[in-house]
């Protein structure tokens, strides 16, 4: 299984929650108590070891706030 990580740019996120809905492995949660400086609830990447870098959270993000990186051996 591929491994990877995501980077959430909090300045761009608007807290719609689509990333948490579409993550098939439950790696992203949105605790409602953590808000960005714009006042939107922001997602947190919790289960780093479960992420398989599929990229679905990234391409379903309407604000392009998520970047997905896959680990590759060189």
């Amino acid at each position: 299984m591929d491994r990877g990580e995501i980077v959430i740019q909090e300045g761009l996120c608007r807290g719609c929650g689509l990333c948490a809905v579409f993550c098939a492995r439950g790696c992203i949660v949105i605790p409602q108590d953590k808000v960005s400086f714009k006042g939107y609830p922001i997602p947190i990447f919790v289960e780093q070891e479960r992420c398989n870098a599929c990229g679905v959270c990234g391409w379903m993000c309407p604000e392009y706030a998520i970047e997905v990186y896959k680990y590759v051996e060189r």
Binding site: L12, Y40, C54, G55, P62, E67, Y71, V72
Partner: peptide
């Protein structure tokens, strides 16, 4: 050595202007 390969991010033809739509709007997608 383990390198990071970008799978997904901002599309190349989308410039850096922030979106103007409401949260949850599908126009960004």
């Amino acid at each position: 050595a383990i390198a990071k390969e970008k799978v997904c991010g901002r599309p190349r033809l989308r410039n850096l202007m922030p979106g103007i739509t409401c949260p949850g709007c599908h126009y960004g997608i």
